[in-house]
Structure formats: structure tokens, C-alpha cells
Design a binder for these strands. Sequence first.
DNA 1: TAGGAGCAGTTAACACTGTTAACCTAATTA
DNA 2: TAATTAGGTTAACAGTGTTAACTGCTCCTA
Lengths: 200, 200
Amino acid sequence: MSEVEIPLRDKILDISRDLLFEEGYKALSMRKIARKANVTATSIYLYFENKDHLLHTLIEESVEELSVFIEERALPQKEPLARFEAIIDGYVDFAVHFPEKYEVIYMVRPDAMARYPKEKFRKARRCYELLVETIQDGISHGVMDVDKPVTAAYSIWAQLHGIVSVVHNKRLDSRVDSEQFIQDSVEHVIQGFLTRASVT
Amino acid sequence: MSEVEIPLRDKILDISRDLLFEEGYKALSMRKIARKANVTATSIYLYFENKDHLLHTLIEESVEELSVFIEERALPQKEPLARFEAIIDGYVDFAVHFPEKYEVIYMVRPDAMARYPKEKFRKARRCYELLVETIQDGISHGVMDVDKPVTAAYSIWAQLHGIVSVVHNKRLDSRVDSEQFIQDSVEHVIQGFLTRASVT
DNA sequence: TAGGAGCAGTTAACACTGTTAACCTAATTA
DNA sequence: TAATTAGGTTAACAGTGTTAACTGCTCCTA
């Protein structure tokens, strides 16, 4: 078919991600994926235990990419404030530039996640722990004002996800520019955790 | 069967909500609902156009209850700060005390929502607008420090939802007490929007 | 060079899903 | 009494995830 033969496993993942993003979770079926890959549905089971595992693999892939994306931006920054901002910007930038990958992470509901191996969560935690450490650093440098870094980190992820969701789901007031909305919101999130002294 | 004959429509809604909460979205089927109601699957179609509409009704019901719950606590408060706290506490209390109703609101994914009539969103907006107004009030009273109330309100919902989700999905570190976590987080959310002068 | 192992895919089938069309029956109304 | 309607049923259709059993085909070894 194509010039370069893509291994079927990767082809299935690509097709699944596209279908998931375009038609949503409900419309995703093994047979539809197979049809797009010019293959029988049963062939998918040669590479994935079942539909859930296929989705988990997709999630895991995206989480890994998001983690790398954030770390690439954050780790070079040595100042706690700069690193803090880099983490947040990294998260939002990833969501804006790769919506189909970002959405996958949150698209599949926890009920399908029931069998999701606990250990896999660790990967998602890598960035979370980086954020916690950065906040702790910020506190000792006197630039951040937070009581409980662990709680604050949770709140920040939730806040960012909320901002991104509003834009992705097009729930924004039509008069509001989405670029501007994101920029303002992110700025607000950041400022909410700084000491008064360090506000620019 | 039962002493008091519950109308079938209500019975279907109750059974659906329970099944949805206990077994998740994926496991919810028309036939299973019908079986629990001692009725045929097709009977459900006498009261609901299809499965999506049944779920939409469930969501709408919960959104309405949440709105009433919040308004009951917030409207009596006339001071902007007290009302601000009442809205936030109301939201979290509802989520903690009626998890099966709260979860329904976020359980069904936007792809099933595609056909969800735009007008229905207004109801969800009632409390959102109350929050915006309260923030604006707080600003003019000099107790709140927010640039864009509209954006801030979005952020607050997202933040609260994130906090609640972590607890509901039992993703919390086993050493962390969930009651304490909620209390600390909420406090942190609130403090993030106050002027330094008004911090207790 | 023959034969077996194993890879990569297939076909056929099972039990289950949402949904529709056609039908029945008992109560209410004209 | 006759007609209509409300509230349910049965049977069927197309589509779903998943399994067991099969087919070619390539490669390694005796």
C-alpha cells in the first residue's frame, strides 16, 4: 500500500487516536479501527489484549509525551520561579498544540480505568512531583506563598485542565478570544501562588 | 410490588443513576435498567427518546439540584465575602454528600453531549453567573483581588472540580485524610482570590 | 532439501448492545 | 356500546467486543 510499511501496531494506535479525537469515545469500535487499517478486527487482538488495553496504551503514550514536553522546558530552568512558569506553560502549550493527544488523556473515563494498573500512574506523577519540588523550592527562596505544596500542585493541574477544557470544548463566550483567555487565565493561576513581593 | 407505586419514569431515572454510579458509564445498558425495573427495554423508549436523552435528563436533574443547593446557602449571605465562601462550600458539600448525583454531571462525556441542547447549559450558568457577580461585588468592596471575574469564575469551578475528583476517585495519598485535604484545598482556593488585607 | 515451528493474519461464531416496527390489552372517553 | 389512547409487549435488525479454530507463509534446522 504505502511506500514505507508502518508496523500494524503503530498504525492501529494512530488510527485509534484520530478516530477518538474526531468521533469521540462512544463511536470508537474495534471493527471501525480495523476497517481503516485494512485488516480484520481480530488482528487488533494480536497486539492488544482488549479494547481497554488499547486505550490505556494510547493514554500512556500521551502522558509520556506530555511529560517529556514539560521536562524539556522546565528542567533547563534553574530558578524556581522560572521553572514554575515553564511547567505551567509547557502543560498548556502541549494541550493547545496537540489537542488530539491531550484529549486522549482525559477522554476515557475512570470506569474503563478500573483495570488500569496502579503502577502506570507513576509516570503521570513524575511531572506532578517535579511541580511539588519546584513549589517547595519557591517557598524556601521566598518567592512563593503556599501552605501545602502537595495540595497546591493538585489544584494547579485541576485549574489548568479546566482552562484548557473550556477552550477545547468551545464553551467560551464567542466574544472572548481564546488565545487571550488562556494567557490571562494562566497568568492568574501563576500570580495566585506568588508572594506579593515577587509579582512583576 | 412496592406499597407505593412509583411512576415508571422516575423509577427508571433512579435505577439509572444508581447503576451509573455503581458500575460506571460503560456498564450501563437499557436492558439492564429495564431488568431492574421489571419491565422490557422498549418500555424505556416510552419515556425517553433514546439513551442519550435519558442521560441528559439525569444530568439536568443533578445540575438543577446542585444549583438549588448552592443558592439556598449563598443567597441569604449578603456580604460578598460570605457569599463567595458559601458558593464554594455549597459546591463542595454537595459533591461530598451526594456523590452519585455530582458524579453524574461529569460522568457522561461531551461526545454524548453533542446533541445536548445548548439552551440546557443556561441552567448550569445560573450559579456561574452568581459567582461572577459575587466576585465583582467583592472587588468593589475591596476584599477581592481579581483582574477578570469571568475568567476567575471558570478557574474556581475547575479547581473545585479537581479537588473533588481526586477525593472521589480515591487518588489521594493514603496518608492524607480526605476531610482535611478538602478543607485545606478549599481554604487555599478562597485565599487565592482575596486581597492581603482581608486574609483572616 | 524436507519438515517442522511459529508468526501474522483470517473466518465463523457467541453473547450482548441500542433501536424500531408491529402488536396486544386494559382503561377512558364519546 | 364503540372508539381511542396509555402503557406495555414480542420479534427483529444492525452493530458491538471477544474467542476458538483455522490458513498461509517464512525461516530455521536436521
